[in-house]
């Protein structure tokens, strides 16, 4: 079972829940993997100190022009929908950051003058944390295409009983890449106007994808009651509430796991896991 931990708003506690839930499941005896798919700003490793065993470059296809074969006809620039190719005075100019690697230029070049080479956009690192496999990715500084790195992290994951995916914030392409093909999404929010607004956007996203999901509320006593009322109105399950606690904030600031600093939270996460299983099992009936 693959579970994505996502949120519209950043800084609501995705990484806290992903790392602590994974460690809880491992201590329950499950084979579990954690994939940190927030490749722009990966943070799980700060809490887990994993032992990294291998590191692989992530590449995306980029056209390479054989100048001897090229006649400067300009078809490659014409078929590129991303403006990544320009032909000036019969010379082909390529803007690598704009390339989506769709293959159109290579496919439609009448002279067979284009081949595809790999361009490095980030890395994937794999290793072990305490009791489970850990994989994360890092987008190279200055690169735009984080979905390619996220995709690489996901395919590096192997079969296991449970896979937990820590997703980036937001509701656009990187998040979709992280949550697609998972079985369940946990949307983490906080009870504030910003938290509610971004939760509504995230709910719109998972509903557009047709995925089973539930909500976790972090710092559940800091703001107002609007998030809970919204969830009630929309018949969305709230599977976890973590109260605001200076001890949690301080442990977090030092890169410590909550379940190490405050073991009582392990019970809460075990219950949360049970809720995920139940909601997932009954999802078809719930929605029909």
């Amino acid at each position: 079972m693959k579970i994505a931990i996502a949120s519209g708003k950043g800084g609501t506690g995705k990484t806290t829940i992903a790392t602590n839930l994974t460690a809880t499941l491992a201590s329950m005896g499950k084979t579990v993997q954690l994939l940190d798919c927030d490749v722009e700003e990966p943070n799980c490793h700060i809490f887990l100190n994993p032992h990294i065993e291998s590191s692989t470059a992530v590449t995306t296809p980029l056209p390479d022009v054989d100048e001897e074969k090229c006649t400067g006809c300009g078809i490659c620039a014409e078929v590129c929908e991303y403006g990544a190719i320009a032909v000036v005075k019969e010379k082909v100019l390529i803007f690598p950051e704009l390339c989506h690697g769709c293959g159109a230029c290579e496919m439609f070049c009448p002279e067979d003058a284009i081949t595809e080479i790999g361009r490095e956009v980030g890395i994937v690192e794999e290793g072990r944390a305490d009791g489970f496999r850990f994989i994360h990715g890092r987008l190279k500084i200055g690169e735009l295409m984080s979905p390619s790195v996220i995709h690489a992290v996901k395919i590096a994951g192997r079969e296991s009983e449970v896979v937990i995916i820590d997703s980036p914030p937001g509701t656009s392409c990187p998040v979709i890449e992280a949550v697609k093909d998972t079985d369940f999404v946990v949307l983490v929010t906080e009870p504030t106007p910003f938290g509610l607004n971004d939760l509504q956007l995230a709910v719109g996203m998972v509903r557009a994808l047709g995925m089973p999901f539930a909500v976790a509320i972090n710092r559940s006593d800091v703001g107002d009651n609007d998030v809970k009322e919204y969830c009630q109105r929309e018949k969305i399950d709230v599977i976890l509430e973590i109260p605001d606690d200076r001890k949690i904030a301080e442990a977090y600031s030092r890169g410590e796991m909550i379940i190490s600093a405050m073991p009582a939270y392990q019970k809460l996460l075990e219950t949360c896991w049970g809720r995920i299983i139940d909601i997932h099992r009954n999802w078809g009936e719930l929605t029909s």
Binding site: T15, E40, E41, I46, G142, S146, G170, Y252, R254
Partner: peptide, 28 residues
């Protein structure tokens, strides 16, 4: 701006006069 360092962030900072990075006192 938005969180992260990818596409929307790059689009929001290119050519700006000053970027302020707001952070919090945590290892993350």
């Amino acid at each position: 701006g938005s969180p992260g360092i990818g596409c929307p962030v790059i689009a929001s900072i290119a050519g700006a006069d000053l970027v302020i990075v707001v952070t919090e006192p945590t290892l993350s």
